[in-house]
């Protein structure tokens, strides 16, 4: 599972992430709780239980596991959206969480305005966005609609533009969550090509996808999560076989 540089890109160290459920967001409920002297522990759920792993620079890792096993939670802890309750996460270099493409898109803005806004949200400077604007638009294949408001786009066009911005941010670490199923066949192939070329450039990638065959072929390492615990860390095809109950 080696990489050329040998330096760590991501270190996850004894990470624990819990979620608390406060079902009613009102003061009345809270006051009632205090009066009854109930602690909130009853409604706690541990999504990640003591997860430790190290990913080297240049590695392409498939994060595998069934729904609710904690894949998205782990990616959000790595991207900084969620803060660990215990343990820690370390990252080297700039990081882009393609957790959900188009998160910062606004329907009332034009495609062009959204490219600038999202480029900036994903950490690009004004000069960087200007420099890559043409490439982003070309990649998304929506040239003639770029000055139209995004709310008039088809969902495919919207996702293509969002994905195009995301893959042009040029970070060192990419976190990809369920976004490779974007758009039609040809565009999917294009996305995959882009991911492969990022990989060839030596970027570090952590990929979550429902298309198990695709990620197994794409990645050089597979990590299996079950109920918030890492249960397997091996060659990806072997991990997929175990998931399918074949091994």
């Amino acid at each position: 599972m080696g990489s050329a540089t040998g330096r760590e890109a991501i270190v996850v160290d004894a990470l624990v992430k819990r979620f608390r459920f406060r079902h009613v967001h009102s003061l009345k409920e809270t006051v009632a709780r205090w009066v009854r002297g109930r602690s909130e522990n009853v409604d706690e759920f541990t999504a990640l239980k003591d997860v430790s792993l190290t990913i080297a620079e240049g590695e392409t890792v498939a994060l595998l596991g069934f729904n609710g096993s904690g894949k998205s939670t782990l990616l959000k802890c790595i991207s900084g959206v969620l803060t660990p309750d215990e343990g820690q996460v370390g990252v080297r270099g700039r990081i882009a969480g393609l957790i959900e493409v188009g998160a910062g898109f606004h329907p009332d803005l034009t495609g062009r305005e959204n490219v600038y806004l999202n480029g900036a949200i994903l950490g690009m400077t004004e000069a960087e966005i200007e420099e890559r604007f043409e490439a982003i638009v070309a990649f998304s294949e929506i040239e003639e609609f770029i000055d139209q408001e995004v709310k008039f786009y088809s969902s495919g066009m919207f996702l293509r533009l969002a994905f195009a911005v995301a893959v042009h941010t040029d970070p060192d670490v990419f976190l990809v969550d369920e976004i490779l199923a974007v758009g039609d066949e040809p565009f999917q192939r294009k996305c995959l090509d882009r991911i492969r070329s990022l990989r060839a450039e030596g970027k570090t990638l952590v990929i979550v996808s429902h298309d198990l065959n695709m990620v197994a072929d794409l990645c050089d390492r597979g990590i299996l999560l079950e109920h918030g615990v890492v249960v397997m860390d091996d060659e990806p095809h072997a991990v997929v076989r175990r998931m399918r109950g074949e091994a």
């Binding site: 900084g80 080297r92 990081i95």
Partner: peptide, 19 residues
């Protein structure tokens, strides 16, 4: 484990999402 018990990160790494 409390914050005090955290091991130092390898050289050049940062904690993401620090407010």
């Amino acid at each position: 484990m409390t914050d005090a018990a955290l091991r130092p990160l390898p050289e050049g790494m940062e904690r993401p999402g620090v407010a």
